[in-house]
């Protein structure tokens, strides 16, 4: 290894012996790559099947290696002292009391809500079924925004179901594997969501741009969207349930953006709604 020399590359003479068939091989493989891209983008091949099988093998091998390693967390548990356990117990008892109070308040509100709904004679909405998932691998890149989560076919997750947190929509399921699935985030360039904006319920299509914020791809005619208005899913097209918050509008240099309510960079857990289309 030599650190002392910096010379202009063109000063070196060409070594024609190295100029071999390898360049031709590379060009040939590049043509193959272009053909694969064409077939994949035009949906002439079922790339999801290939992705599914390869990722399943990867996850299986990962599970195999991680299960054969000793569980260091359990070893650590043995070293926790009695004092620490007593302290932890006290904190947990306090927390459970607080949660008890919250539960009571929530129940009271629920009863009150039911009475009010009966008085207004509103038909009861169907309860959303969901599973909570942990983000397994963050596969966001410059050119695509997706994440892998640790629930899949084993929890009845299906393509098209929406992923959200208590703050709002995160994305939708695009690929499902045995124990894992992939969520396409709302900020991805291929994400298009039918929405309603603000109190006026203006219909629009929201599109991701591989940026932190989202942009409107389509507006209802002659409508003005103000700043700081909440954007909800409209449920049009039956892809998402209606009324899931997405973000808040912001106007910069005359252009309207939507800032997602969730910080997609710091997500750890999310909920997958299993009963899409039921309220549609």
């Amino acid at each position: 290894m030599r650190f002392d020399r910096l010379m202009f590359p063109l000063l070196y003479k060409r070594n024609k012996n190295i100029y071999s068939s390898s360049i031709l091989t590379i060009i040939f493989l590049m043509i193959i790559s272009v053909i694969i891209i064409f077939f994949d983008t035009q949906n002439l091949i079922k790339s999801s099947v290939v992705r599914n099988k390869v990722l399943n093998i990867m996850f299986l091998s990962k599970d195999f290696f991680s299960s054969s390693l000793p569980n260091f967390l359990k070893l650590k548990e043995h070293f926790i002292s009695k004092k620490q356990l007593i302290l932890e117990n006290e904190i947990l008892q306090k927390e459970s009391k607080e949660y008890g109070l919250w539960e009571l308040k929530a129940k009271r509100l629920e009863i009150e809500n039911k009475i009010l709904k009966k008085e207004l004679s509103i038909t009861p909405s169907k309860i959303n079924k969901y599973v909570t998932a942990k983000i397994f691998v963050d596969t966001k890149s410059l050119f695509s925004k997706s994440i892998l989560i640790n629930v899949g076919k084993n929890m009845n997750v299906q393509i098209g179901q929406s992923a959200a947190t208590s703050k709002g929509l995160v994305g939708s399921i695009v690929e499902v594997y045995d124990n894992y699935s992939r969520v396409l985030l709302i900020t991805d360039i291929n994400s298009k969501i039918p929405v309603r904006v603000g109190k006026k319920n203006i219909k629009a299509i929201l599109s991701g741009k591989n940026k932190k914020e989202l942009e409107f791809a389509y507006f209802q005619d002659n409508q003005i969207i103000n700043e700081n208005e909440t954007v909800f899913t409209s449920g049009d097209g039956g892809y998402f349930n209606s009324g899931i918050p997405i973000g808040i509008t912001r106007i910069e240099n005359g252009k309207t953006y939507v800032i997602p309510t969730n910080n997609l960079e710091e997500l750890q857990y999310l909920q997958i709604f299993l009963n899409n289309f039921k309220s549609f």
């Binding site: 493989l29 590049m30 193959i32 790559s33 272009v34 053909i35 694969i36 891209i37 077939f39 994949d40 983008t41 091949i45 790339s47 290939v50 992705r51 390869v54 990722l55 596969t139 890149s141 050119f143 695509s144 997706s146 695009v174 690929e175 992939r182 396409l184």
Partner: peptide, 13 residues
């Protein structure tokens, strides 16, 4: 491409 959900063949190219 499979890991990052990109069109197959793009990163290879």
């Amino acid at each position: 491409d499979i890991i990052y959900l990109l069109p197959l063949g793009s990163t290879s190219l």
